[in-house]
């Protein structure tokens, strides 16, 4: 248990420097710093309402989160003023905690448009179906889900599998998993997590940022670094053992060390 000194040796894929973020006039991130090197897996843990999901939204470019200070560099390029879609096409992928339901927009149309946008040309129907079928099979997804409205009527597990299906088809180089494990039963978690682990194995330079409350997902996707966030900044960093320590004893010790008293917050 305790603070670790981390020495980065590879190229930095994502570098967040002194980032401060406001949501509805409230400071959520305060001079937040994080470097993620090529091929590394980082985990962000922390109590509710400390800014974990905010971080994922800000990296992706959600306009509802106002960056008041700092930089977000992706492969050395400042992406702070880049549009959401451009960030995605650069290789950033956000698997959302609550994937949205969009009635009328078919999953198939959505996926085909997304792949075509990434590849810069309209992907052929046969090619698309082939790719989709292979990826759906890996995820043990019902083949009919592809023909239904995007996430409409999907179970919690099916929604999360659909996020991972997108990931497999869009082939990002930087993946953010925002509480991917929430709402998943043990079997679905295993399928989803092993698919991500397989993707990482096949694409070793891919970096992953996992935002989670639980360490179960980390049994399948072994992290290089675990960070504890509170009051909008990292207050502790360690390795996999830190996540196990937190699972066992909670955050109180780390919060006390940093003199942080949290309000009771159930929603981030």
């Amino acid at each position: 248990m305790g603070f670790s000194v981390i020495i980065y040796v590879g190229d930095i894929m994502l570098s967040i420097k002194n980032l401060s973020v406001k949501v509805e006039e409230k400071n959520v991130l305060n001079n937040f710093n994080l470097d993620i090197e090529d091929g590394s897996i980082h985990v962000i843990m922390g109590p509710n309402g400390v800014g974990k999901s905010t971080l994922s939204r800000v990296i992706m470019g959600d306009n509802n989160y106002k960056v008041t200070n700092g930089e977000i560099l992706f492969n050395g390029e400042d992406i702070k003023n880049m549009s959401v879609d451009a960030r995605s096409r650069l290789g950033i992928f956000l698997a959302m905690q609550y994937p949205l339901e969009i009635d009328g927009v078919s999953n198939q149309d959505f996926l085909r448009t997304a792949i075509s946008s990434h590849e810069g040309k309209r992907v052929g129907l046969y090619d698309f179906i082939k790719r989709c079928e292979a990826a759906s099979e890996d995820l043990k997804m019902d083949k009919n889900l592809i023909h239904r409205s995007l996430n409409v009527g999907f179970s919690g597990g099916e929604k999360k599998k659909n996020e991972v299906l997108q990931l497999k088809l869009l082939k990002p180089s930087f993946i953010i998993l925002d509480e991917l494990d929430s709402g998943l039963d043990v079997d679905s978690l295993k399928i989803v997590a092993t698919n991500i682990a397989k993707y990482k194995k096949d694409n070793p330079n891919t970096s992953i940022l996992i935002i989670t409350h639980l360490s179960k997902i980390l049994d399948y996707i072994k992290p290089d670094y675990v960070h504890v966030v509170a009051n909008g900044k990292i207050i502790a960093t360690g390795d996999y053992s830190l996540s196990q320590e937190i699972e066992k004893n909670g955050y109180s010790e780390y919060l006390a060390k940093s003199n942080i008293i949290l309000e009771d917050k159930n929603n981030e």
Partner: peptide, 8 residues
Amino acid sequence: FYLMSKGI
């Protein structure tokens, strides 16, 4: 946001 975050 959701659709654009997938590169569209």
